[in-house]
């Protein structure tokens, strides 16, 4: 048993085919907040999220979730389905042969109230009128909402988002991010967003972990890091915002 609620990672490492993808990652992710894991492509952030979700084990290190040891040294102690987490994947992982409602219902398992919960979740995401459609019959934004509805239907304590907004235009992206903010706040869900885009992270997350080449570079409050961080991604974002601000000011 460990002392805090939320995720606690201790010296987590992961190696793929001789290449170290994560090296000695140690951090704490407290609940009831929105967290962002920001880093360039190939920095190991998606691997970290999958390990936290219990989809793959760490080669070394320990992971605690709500004071329970859930993964350690090459083994998954508590399977993903027992961790009270949900996940929205980069490719959304919608099963193409099932309707929107069936996609949500299948994720609810043997719950007697599955049908009601599924419809409720679809309504929350404003797509209940599309319940009988197949994923291929939905637009990009609607598919995103469906993936979110499926993730929220199980009433998770943690919502993991693995770069789910890539490929969406700015307007749809903003709408979905707002929806996530409202819903996770209402249901007290801790959000962990993995992204390479500081805009997405800044829109959704209060606290961030900066990761590069499999190691945590910095972590803390987003506003503070925005002002002081030397992390290239954040610096570029800051410069961009600054020039845009100057441009608008004339």
């Amino acid at each position: 048993m460990k002392g805090i609620k939320g995720f606690e990672l201790e010296n987590v490492s992961r190696v793929y085919g001789g290449k170290t993808v994560l090296r000695d990652i140690s951090c704490r992710i407290e609940p009831n907040a929105s967290w962002g894991i920001l880093g360039p492509s190939g920095s190991g952030k998606s691997t970290l999220l999958r390990i936290m979700a219990g989809l793959e084990p760490p080669d070394q290190g320990k992971i605690f979730l709500d004071k329970r040891l859930v993964s350690r040294d090459g083994a998954i102690e508590v399977p993903a389905s027992k961790r009270q987490i949900s996940m929205v994947f980069q490719d959304l992982a919608l099963w193409p042969n099932l309707t929107a409602e069936e996609n949500v219902r299948l994720g609810l398992g043997k719950d007697k109230d599955a049908a009601r919960k599924a419809m409720e979740s679809l309504s929350m995401c404003s797509i209940s009128h599309l319940a009988k459609r197949y994923p291929a019959q939905l637009s990009g934004g609607e598919q995103q909402r469906l993936a979110l509805a499926r993730a929220l239907a199980a009433r998770p304590a943690y919502l993991l988002l693995d770069e789910p907004f890539s490929g969406l235009d700015m307007e749809i992206k903003s709408n979905i991010i707002n929806k996530i903010k409202v819903l996770t706040a209402a249901h007290k869900i801790t959000t962990i967003l993995v992204s390479h885009d500081p805009f997405e992270v800044s829109s959704l997350c209060r606290r961030i972990i900066l990761i590069d080449q499999g190691e945590i570079v910095e972590s803390g409050d987003f506003k503070t890091l925005m002002q002081n961080s030397k992390f290239p991604l954040l610096r570029a974002f800051r410069d961009c915002l600054h020039s845009l601000h100057m441009e608008i000011k004339g």
């Binding site: 999958r50 993903a80 987490i85 996940m87 994947f89 980069q90 992982a93 099932l98 299948l106 994720g107």
Partner: peptide
Amino acid sequence: SWSFAAEIHGISLGKFLIR
């Protein structure tokens, strides 16, 4: 990610294969 999503939602291999 299909299998990952099934695992996250506690869908067994048999059910995933059939459905």
